[in-house]
């Protein structure tokens, strides 16, 4: 049974004010908005249900679960991180995942979340400089460190992704604040349904629309988000 302190820590980490760095990424949404593929709250809801949530469930979730189970073993975490690296075949989404992982590790090491400093030190000592920890691996490790149960760690991580994309839609001017809350409420159905199913045995996702969108912006384009 997760205690109240752990629940409070989860709420703290999932709060939009928590400096995870996730605010800098739109997961391809900015391109889809600019190309006219996402124009409304309905479009965003479909994108979340059809692409963003399934991609997290199929790809990030198994990695998070593996990391959660190996949270006490930095070397095992790094091996999972390396597998995540090899499977992250969408360059900008991979880069975003690493930057968020690095930010999470930095902040949690600073506030002494159990496991964060040990994994950060392990990466610095054993990994190439760019290997700063992928988001789901760091989230899984931190979830265990915060004393969450696995289900809560999953809920927190998926919620971060969904609220991040929805928040990006607001900042892109495609959604009002109230509409955003309606989208989040509706997306909860797909989140619950997905999390209620067994996690895939192996990580691997098929969400080509958002994956392609994340890669399409050229360096010359002025953008609000890094992907």
């Amino acid at each position: 049974m997760t205690d109240l302190r752990s629940q409070l820590r989860m709420l703290q980490c999932c709060d939009s004010a928590f400096p995870s760095g996730a605010f800098a990424f739109s997961s391809g949404l900015e391109t889809l908005v600019n190309e006219g593929r996402v124009k409304s709250a309905t479009d965003l809801h479909q994108l979340l249900d059809g692409q963003v949530i399934p991609r997290w469930l199929d790809f990030d979730r198994p990695f998070l679960r593996q990391a959660f189970a190996s949270a006490q073993d930095p070397d095992a975490l790094y091996q999972i991180d390396t597998r995540c690296h090899l499977q992250n075949t969408v360059e900008r989404l991979a880069r975003a995942s690493r930057r968020i992982g690095r930010s999470l590790l930095t902040v949690h090491a600073r506030i002494a979340t159990p496991g964060a400093k040990a994994y950060q030190d392990h990466l610095r000592a054993n990994a190439p400089p760019e290997a700063t920890g992928y988001e789901p691996i760091v989230q899984g490790m931190l979830g265990a460190g915060l004393g969450l149960d696995l289900s809560q760690a999953e809920v927190g991580a998926l919620n971060t992704v969904v609220t991040g994309v929805t928040s990006a839609a607001v900042r892109l001017g495609k959604l009002g604040a109230l509409d955003a809350q309606a989208v989040l409420a509706a997306a909860a159905n797909a989140m619950v349904a997905g999390l209620s199913c067994p996690a895939p045995e192996y990580p691997g996702a098929f969400a080509p629309l958002v994956e392609i969108a994340a890669q399409r912006r050229t360096a010359e384009q002025i953008s609000l988000f890094a992907n």
């Binding site: 249900d49 199929d58 090899l86 098929f206 629309l209």
Partner: peptide, 23 residues
């Protein structure tokens, strides 16, 4: 160097591709 892998039920194809029949 890389591993690109997925498992998909046919009913999810069009949702994941945004309606495209090919990928």
């Amino acid at each position: 160097l890389m591993l690109d892998r997925f498992a998909l039920s046919g009913g999810a194809w069009l949702t994941r591709t945004g309606g495209a029949r090919c990928a």
